[in-house]
Simulated assay, not measured.
Amino acid sequence: MSNRLPAVTVVGSINLDLIATAERLPTAGETIGGAVLSEQPGGKGANQAAAAARLGGSARIVGAVGSDAQGRRMLDALAAAGVDMADVALLPGATGTALIVVDRDGENQIVVCPGANSSLSLEGVEFGPEETVLCQLEVGLPVVLEAARRSAGYFVLNAAPAMDLPAELLERCDLVIVNETEYELIPALAEAKLVAVTYGKDGSAMFEHGRRVAEAPASAVTVANTIGAGDAFCAALVLALGAGLSYAEALAVANAVGADAVGDPSSQPDLARLGHYVGRTTATDSAR
Rank of each mutant, 00 (worst) to 15 (best):
I61W: 03
V62S: 00
V62K: 00
V65N: 01
G66N: 05
G66D: 01
S67Q: 09
D68L: 02
A69E: 01
Q70Y: 09
R73T: 14
M74K: 02
L75A: 06
A77D: 11
A77G: 06
A80F: 13
D84M: 08
M85S: 06
M85E: 03
A86K: 10
A86H: 11
D87C: 05
V88H: 09
A89V: 07
L91V: 15
L91T: 10
L91W: 01
P92D: 08
G93A: 04
G96L: 05
A98S: 04
I100S: 01
I100G: 00
I100F: 01
V101T: 12
V101P: 14
V101I: 06
V101F: 15
V102Y: 02
V102K: 10
D103G: 03
D103C: 15
R104M: 12
R104H: 11
R104G: 07
G106S: 09
E107P: 13
E107Y: 02
Q109C: 12
I110H: 11
C113F: 00
G115C: 07
N117G: 03
S118P: 08
S118A: 13
S119H: 14
S119R: 14
L122H: 07
E123R: 13
E123N: 10
G124Y: 12
V125N: 11
V125S: 11
F127L: 00
F127W: 00
P129F: 04
E130F: 13
E130G: 12
V133Y: 04
V133M: 08
V133S: 11
L134P: 02
L134M: 12
L134G: 08
C135R: 12
L137C: 04
L141W: 09
V143W: 04
V144R: 11
L145A: 14
E146Y: 15
E146L: 14
E146G: 12
